[in-house]
Design a protein around this nucleic acid. Structure first.
Lengths: 340, 340
DNA sequence: ACTGCAATCGTTATCGGTTACGTTTCCAGG
DNA sequence: CCTGGAAACGTAACCGATAACGATTGCAGT
């Protein structure tokens, strides 16, 4: 039953060991210049008092802290996947991870959030940060790696090959015979959203199918944003036979709207999403989607940040990871394969 | 294109505004004794330099930081669920959250991990901490709430009603006609594991079925630990007709072993897990399991910690949340309902 | 014994803030 | 005109650690 409220500091240890705090510090950090005898005394004092160095005080004074940061504006299931990858990459690397989450903005968003927290952390606490889906340009004195950055970002980043993924998705629909393919876009300021739209356009064009701007809905990756857009597309006199949504969250909403409107998926309407979040395997029907391994994104981002922090430069500052199409049961040939 | 490497500190602001750092601090914290004119000047200097106060420096000097901590020894899918609940509870509460994850121990474990990190954080950085599944007694100068604590823990905690959940699971099996029900226990130092085993024993006893110690395997919640145990149970001359595992991770391993050994689930063997992690809905067959809402655990833990930190005492220091049985397709009546 | 160089250890400035306390300014009241 | 006191602001100590630097000690070399 040791004392509970004992903020035991380095000077406590120093007093007990009969040395100065500098010596205690030297012992802890394994620095040169302390005799075996004193070392033993300090060690014993540390043990006796149950001393643990304060992360805060240490990082204020030191330049390197061996702590990396991660800033995310919300916790979705994909954030958890990213985390797993990050932890894996950091495993036994000597780096700890601090995840900073701002509760006031949970759900909502206020401009410059990442920047604000980045500066608060990187001032001293962390040696570098990973930022998940930043909405603006990120800057910091310490290295930053962005996952799915903003379009105008020049910072080191890791993204999936969104263009290729979107192309594959649309080619899959084209291959099934679809010609009127709707698209629900993501927040266009994000490079991921932009590339997915480009992939959509490119696949259509390459197949000789003209891009119909009225078939494109402008969402923002927020699932709810897809609802009115899907409704608008499906209530047209000439609804598309397939809809490709730029994210699974939005695609799931498309499924809902389709059901509400009496469309049967995939008989009346094919739906494709993007991300391959766990929920897509559980829905009825299972959602065909483009898999981007959030785990891999996290893993690579952490590996890159580690290299940046330790100064081992890594050449490709922008890493692009492959995607793959996961075909489930939300896609099928259109009812009437009438070639126009 | 503002300067990138600009560690802009409070004294920078003070210099630009032509005041002392004390005044800047007063302005930032809205303290009394600053004229409207100076205040405006300081505000403008802050704006101009893009100053953000350092979390570290502030928390070193201050007692309250308005930051809560969460310490988890690994990131599984259930950790993510807990996080969502925590974030929800902290939403717009004025408290931020810092999650500390130690990479060196990822997967493995070394004694006293939580205590070490708790003291490192609670020294200054955080006002209080949530600890997820601590393996030992946790102590700290600041309030701590444990989720699924150790058995001997007296700290404030939040747990699911593990006893009732386990009882329900076993009663479900009994109701199907099973009498030889194997059990794979969790790490017995955790109260969750202990209660689940008690529930198992109690349900059997209440039904007049004697507890056969040879049908109990001593696992430790680590999925791998269940493999040899399941193998041993199923390779007996008189294998059980059902196995209840104290966690879904272990239950999924039981499914694997059963398949390898030629058992058909649920025809030859019924399997029940505990936790209701997302994967359990995806396996073939879907796993019958006991649902404990990790989201709720996180939510309640955060709510409790908040109250402890702000001093608004909350009476029940040990919160117990209800569980519910989720029946999927891994359970069925035994082949021969031979009453012994 | 005296010098010189390591090895060992203490002193002190410092990180970026907060705050107790002291000082100056300014104005109302006598 | 002088005094008192509140308002406004600066000074410096301090939070808990680190590290540059200086001081002390021990011992080999001459």
């Amino acid at each position: 039953m040791t004392g509970v409220n004992a903020p035991v500091t380095m000077s406590d240890v120093a007093r007990v060991a009969g040395v100065s705090t500098a010596t205690v510090s030297r012992v802890i950090n394994g620095h040169y210049g302390v005799s075996a005898h004193t070392m033993a005394q300090v060690r014993s004092a540390i043990e006796q008092l149950g001393y643990e160095s304060s992360l805060v005080a240490t990082s204020l004074r030191r330049s390197r802290t061996n702590v990396l940061g991660l800033v995310a504006h919300s916790f979705q299931s994909y954030t958890a996947e990213v985390l797993k990858g990050v932890m894996k990459a950091l495993s036994r690397s000597g780096f700890d991870l601090i995840i900073y989450a701002n509760s006031d903005l949970y759900g909502s968003y206020s401009e410059g959030w990442e920047r604000r927290h980045l500066t608060r952390l990187s001032g001293t606490l962390t040696d570098g940060c990973i930022v998940v889906t930043p909405w603006g340009e990120v800057r910091s004195r310490t290295p930053v790696v962005a996952i799915d950055p903003a379009r105008d970002s020049t910072a080191p980043s890791v993204t999936a090959d969104n263009f290729a993924g979107a192309t594959a998705a649309v080619e899959h629909l084209l291959g099934l015979g679809h010609r009127r393919i709707g698209f629900i876009a993501g927040r266009s300021s994000l490079v991921a959203a932009w590339s997915r739209e480009e992939g959509y356009r490119s696949a259509l064009t390459d197949a000789g199918v003209p891009v119909d701007p009225t078939l494109i809905g402008r969402g923002d990756f927020n699932p709810e944003s897809a609802v009115p857009l899907a409704r608008a597309l499906l209530q047209r006199a000439d609804p598309p036979t397939a809809i490709f949504a730029a994210s699974d969250g939005m695609a799931l909403k498309v499924l809902e709207v389709a059901r509400d409107l009496g469309f049967s998926v995939p008989a009346d309407l094919s739906v494709v999403g993007f991300d391959n979040i766990p929920e897509t395997a559980l829905t009825e029907p299972g959602l065909t989607t483009v898999d981007q391994s959030m785990y891999q994104l996290g893993y690579e981002a952490a590996r890159m940040l580690k290299a940046l922090v330790t100064g081992e430069w890594e050449e490709p500052r922008q890493i692009v990871l492959p995607t793959s199409l996961v075909i489930r049961s939300s896609t099928a040939p259109p009812k009437s394969t009438a070639r126009s």
